[in-house]
Design a protein around this nucleic acid. Structure first.
Lengths: 184, 184
DNA sequence: ACCTGAACACCGTTCAAGT
DNA sequence: ACCTGAACACCGTTCAAGT
């Protein structure tokens, strides 16, 4: 199989999820891919840049998932994005934590959050308020995922989903409340 | 000056804030402290354990700050804790991100959040709901801090504080709403 | 008892050769 | 043009000696 940058990133993601982020070394990655380290450095300038690519891949997976769920009917865009984020966080917890704490992904994250905020349920918010709402929800979602990902599997009960929904509903309800106050 | 574990942890915190978390090496830490690496390993079993101590120090700094603000009058405990968290996150951004993404600190975090939730403003919640509220707020706070810490200083406007308050108020207001619904 | 320098097995990254 | 093995300057951690 040909050695492409996508394959390198994909294998890196697998290795990160299998072990720890710290467990990823360029040498092991190379041996997993069946090559030396030099071909890696031909396709990716550094380990740091590779981790940025991993973070970007996670972000685009979130977008992809959200678009998919959106098409199959369903909820408003904010809720859809929140859930897509959470689903991906469930599937790739370590890479998602990585993405959340990486400066490179932080900008993209914010942009996609504010994009989704363009179509808030109650609408009628000015740009400033809707941006703030988006950031508040994004902060909640990121914090929830981080907690999920960091807790030992034993420590977290089976009611993680309900917890997430509870807080999300709380925020969304507060938003609706806010819009009706603004309207009157 | 004597080499104590506290001094080791304190210097580690300084170095992490000065550079990157990755920039902390046991060798550099030793030379900063004016000793060899062996004395370090006599006081701290490993680098990983040292990072756990750093995370714990950040957590207890949050508690200390919260207690202090609480004594000088002021708001309800949830809001006080949230702000203490945020203040410490402002002062030690890199260490706070470290703490938030470390399993060892994650438990302590949750405990202190649920402790504060014992005295929620509207009160009258059963244990299950108040725990959920605490976790929701904690998730929001952690997410906000992570965003603050990861964004380039240039990218974040001067209105970070207002943003934080906005989201916090949104959640707290939603809680009051919820309690009055429950009461009726 | 507490420190030192040297060593071990690893890193990320780059070099000079090989085909 | 693309790969290899060896090298460089680092790691975390532990060793056998020194005082």
């Amino acid at each position: 199989m040909q050695l492409t940058r996508n394959r390198i990133v994909g294998t890196a993601i697998e290795m990160i999820e299998r072990g720890d982020v710290a467990a990823l070394s360029m040498r092991e990655l190379a041996s997993e891919l069946g090559c030396g380290v030099v071909p890696l450095y031909d396709r990716v300038p550094s380990k740091d840049a590779l981790l940025d690519r991993v973070a970007a891949a996670v972000m685009s997976e979130i977008d992809r998932t959200a678009r998919q769920e959106q098409e199959s009917g369903g909820h408003d865009r904010v809720r859809t994005l929140a859930k897509a984020f959470r689903d991906v966080g469930r599937t790739y917890p370590r890479c998602t934590v990585l993405a959340a704490s990486r400066q490179s992904a932080s900008g993209a994250l914010q942009a996609s959050g504010e994009g989704a905020a363009g179509v808030l349920p109650g609408a009628g918010f000015d740009g400033r308020v809707s941006g703030r709402l988006a950031r508040a929800i994004l902060a909640y979602v990121v914090g929830s995922i981080l907690r999920d990902a960091c807790l030992t599997p034993g420590l977290r009960g089976g009611e993680d989903d309900e917890d997430f929904e509870f807080g999300l509903d709380l925020l969304l309800r507060a938003m609706v409340e806010l819009s009706s106050v603004q309207a009157s």
